[in-house]
Simulated assay, not measured.
Amino acid sequence: MIGGQALRITISRWRLQSRERVEVASDTDHDCHVLSIALRRTRKELFIGGKSVWLGGSRDEMLLTGPKRGNWRATVEGGCDFLRVFLPQALIAECHAEAFGAPPAGVISLFDVVPVADTRLHRLGRTFTALDGYDPVAGPCFADLLGLSLGLRLVELAYGTPSASGNCTLARPQIARVVSFIEDNIAQALCLSELSEVAGLSRVQLVRQFKQATGRPPHSFILQRRIERAKELLKRSDSTIVGVALDLGFHSQGHFTKVFSKFAGMTPGRWRSSQF
Results as ranks from 00 to 15, higher is better:
14 W>K: 10
28 T>D: 02
87 L>H: 04
30 H>E: 04
104 P>S: 10
116 V>Y: 04
108 I>A: 08
63 L>H: 07
83 L>D: 01
53 V>W: 00
49 G>Q: 04
23 E>V: 15
15 R>K: 12
74 A>M: 12
40 R>P: 02
98 E>M: 02
77 E>H: 14
112 D>G: 07
76 V>T: 15
85 V>Y: 05
29 D>P: 03
96 H>G: 02
29 D>Y: 00
95 C>P: 03
75 T>D: 05
70 G>E: 06
39 L>H: 00
30 H>A: 05
69 R>C: 05
73 R>Y: 07
73 R>I: 10
47 F>D: 04
65 T>A: 08
115 P>M: 09
70 G>H: 05
60 D>I: 11
25 A>F: 08
12 S>D: 09
64 L>S: 06
105 A>L: 11
23 E>D: 05
96 H>Y: 09
55 L>S: 13
12 S>C: 02
16 L>I: 12
111 F>A: 07
51 K>N: 02
90 A>F: 00
104 P>H: 04
30 H>D: 10
111 F>T: 13
49 G>L: 03
42 T>I: 11
18 S>K: 04
59 R>T: 13
81 D>V: 05
103 P>G: 00
53 V>N: 01
18 S>M: 02
12 S>T: 12
113 V>K: 08
28 T>M: 06
41 R>F: 12
8 R>I: 03
8 R>P: 00
48 I>L: 12
104 P>N: 04
57 G>S: 04
116 V>K: 07
44 K>W: 14
112 D>E: 15
103 P>I: 06
100 F>N: 05
30 H>F: 07
15 R>I: 15
51 K>V: 13
53 V>A: 01
83 L>Q: 02
21 R>Q: 13
24 V>A: 11
42 T>P: 05
8 R>V: 01
105 A>V: 12
79 G>F: 00
105 A>P: 10
21 R>D: 13
55 L>G: 09
72 W>L: 01
16 L>T: 07
101 G>F: 07
45 E>P: 09
33 H>T: 15
44 K>C: 15
91 L>E: 04
25 A>H: 10
41 R>E: 15
72 W>F: 03
64 L>T: 14
87 L>N: 05
10 T>K: 06
10 T>L: 03
110 L>D: 10
59 R>K: 15
42 T>H: 15
53 V>H: 02
85 V>S: 03
107 V>R: 14
74 A>N: 06
60 D>M: 13
39 L>I: 04
21 R>K: 15
10 T>M: 06
18 S>W: 06
40 R>K: 13
63 L>V: 15
30 H>P: 01
76 V>E: 08
54 W>V: 14
59 R>S: 07
47 F>V: 08
93 A>T: 07
107 V>H: 09
87 L>S: 06
93 A>C: 06
54 W>M: 09
82 F>D: 03
38 A>F: 08
60 D>P: 07
13 R>S: 02
29 D>S: 02
50 G>C: 05
57 G>I: 08
16 L>A: 10
30 H>G: 00
15 R>M: 06
31 D>G: 10
71 N>C: 07
79 G>H: 00
45 E>I: 15
69 R>P: 00
115 P>Q: 13
98 E>I: 03
50 G>I: 10
44 K>Y: 12
112 D>S: 14
38 A>C: 11
40 R>S: 11
57 G>V: 06
100 F>H: 02
23 E>A: 13
